[in-house]
Amino acid sequence: MALKPETDAVSGVATTGHEWDGIKELDNPMPAWWVYTFYACIAFAAVWVVFYPSLPFVRGTLGYTGRSDLSRVMEAERARTEPMLARIRAATPAAIAADPELRGFALAGGRVAFANNCAGCHGAGGQGAVGGFPSLADDDWIYGGSFDAIQQTITVGVRNGEHPDARGVAMPAFAQAGLTPAQIGTLADHVLSLSGAGPASAPGAALYAENCVACHGDRGEGNRELGAPRLNDQVWLYGGDRAAIGRTIANARAGVMPAWGSRLDPATINMLTVYVHALGGGEQ
């Protein structure tokens, strides 16, 4: 390292004396524009600290927060959508579906509300899942697929113990009610025969008449008032093979659903009703 400043031959600029593998660092001064920009940044920062929250526990004189910004945006958005939501709140789901403008708004809003609240159990497109999560896209309804029935089910929920009018009655567990495994097997065969899967049998019919008819009906047509599913169709909530049906008879099933009436506002429930009705299985 040289003691006195060394000058680079090509550029005529002094070097810093630092050298890496023969490459020497030039000691060029900072460009003036760079230096002034740097000073301007420092001045800007000083002003910023006064006006905006920059230090711990110091709010800044403008009182700005990101959260207040967000709530202002949300407030503006609520104000923007409120006229439509007011109309949706005041109308019945059937009336909403009949008005193209309201229907479009309700389908869009319902899609979002469905994804936020319902898709966890019923699936992204309302396809449901075997094991007690009913499909909302098919034409099989436990409590009815009309606008009113869907709205009611969403509002009160199913067997949740939180709403006095919650849907559904309890199914007895027939293994505890005294049916033997053999009887349960016979009964399962008979239930399968209701939808054309296998032959009917006299013992099975007798067991069915004794234990099931009250809720599920003579021919397995179900009862929407009680929430007793149809047994004579091709849709099975807990699986449609003999073993699964046998387990259902032996241990009973009791699906639950929260009462959304206390969680969602009426406009959202109306939009959800219209959306679910339009998934493909809505009834008049």
Partner: peptide
């Protein structure tokens, strides 16, 4: 084609 669900089984099969 809608992908969720890919198809729906109706009550008549």
């Amino acid at each position: 084609a809608e992908r969720a669900p890919p198809y729906v089984r109706l009550s008549d099969g």
